[in-house]
């Protein structure tokens, strides 16, 4: 083995230890609930808890709704900006990046001020309204990820030429978007969707300040009051995130006509 290759392996090993050591330690700790022996008691307690199931279901439904709205917003926008308004690309990109720049706490206070019970549109006044407000907040959080994923996919398929080819066959804009563009950027949309899911499922600030029964605040509550369960939940959340990333790879290469 050459000296250079040895160095590369050492760097990889160091990186792996940096990421894996806390994970392994957390996992090991999560198994120690029963005194003197390893067990999955902490996981059983977590999964048996009604609060876990309810908050997880709530966040999952909210994440799915977020994905539908953000995709419906971003796909046509990115497509038409790339096709007809390329000069606006910079501005749109800047707007989609804003949620990364503005802290969530600032955003949520803005929402409460704009849509509080004494405002013209008092969304926080009802449970459904607050759910909708939380979902729209998450749409903002998902924007940078979804826009980038979709725009990169559009670039990769040469959307302009495909659109012109479909137009010369007599197709209108809606048919082109649904039958030609969308199926070919499916992997991009799904990448954006899974990233959005991973963000929404563990989000704390929005959900907590809007007082919604989401998974993030549940994690925080358990973390503050229990010893082993938070470690088990951290492993579960980590597994969910990795499952999402794994699915991106899986479905990304599985669309019809995609090169394998």
């Amino acid at each position: 083995m050459t000296r250079g290759r040895l160095g590369a392996w050492a760097a990889v090993a160091l990186g792996a230890v940096y990421f894996l050591a806390p994970l392994v330690a957390t996992f090991e700790f999560s198994l120690r609930m029963r005194r003197g022996q390893y067990s999955f008691d902490a996981y059983e307690t977590v999964f048996a808890s009604g609060a876990f199931r309810e908050s997880f279901l709530y966040s999952t439904v909210l994440a799915l709704a977020t994905i539908v709205v953000v995709a419906a917003l971003v796909v046509p926008t990115a497509y038409f900006v790339r096709l007809r308004l390329p000069r606006l690309a910079g501005i749109v990109e800047f707007i989609t990046l804003l949620p990364l720049v503005i802290p969530a706490i600032v955003l949520v206070f803005g929402y409460i001020r704009l849509y509080g019970s004494s405002s013209a549109l008092p969304l926080t006044g009802s449970s459904l309204g607050a759910d909708a407000l939380l979902m729209f907040g998450y749409v903002g959080l998902g924007l940078p990820y979804m826009y980038r994923a979709v725009d990169t996919a559009l670039q990769a398929i040469d959307a302009r030429t495909l659109t012109e080819a479909a137009e010369s066959q007599g197709a209108g804009s809606l048919r082109i978007l649904v039958e030609v563009i969308l199926p070919n950027i499916r992997s991009g949309v799904l990448s954006g969707a899974f990233l959005t899911f991973a963000i929404v499922i563990g989000e704390f600030t929005f959900a907590s300040l809007l007082d919604r029964p989401a998974f993030g605040p549940y994690l925080q509550r358990i973390g503050a009051s229990r010893a082993y369960e938070p470690a088990a939940l951290a492993i579960v959340a980590f597994a969910l995130t990795w499952a999402s990333l794994g699915l991106i790879h899986l479905v990304g290469g599985a669309s019809p006509g995609a090169k394998r």
Binding site: T161, E164, S168, G172
Partner: peptide, 22 residues
């Protein structure tokens, strides 16, 4: 007249076949 109303067939340099269709 819009392109999709002209009944004009076009072949592109980069083929431009729809990748998702047979």
């Amino acid at each position: 007249l819009r392109a999709n109303r002209r009944a004009v067939g076009m072949v592109f340099q980069a083929y431009a076949l729809f990748p998702n269709m047979t």
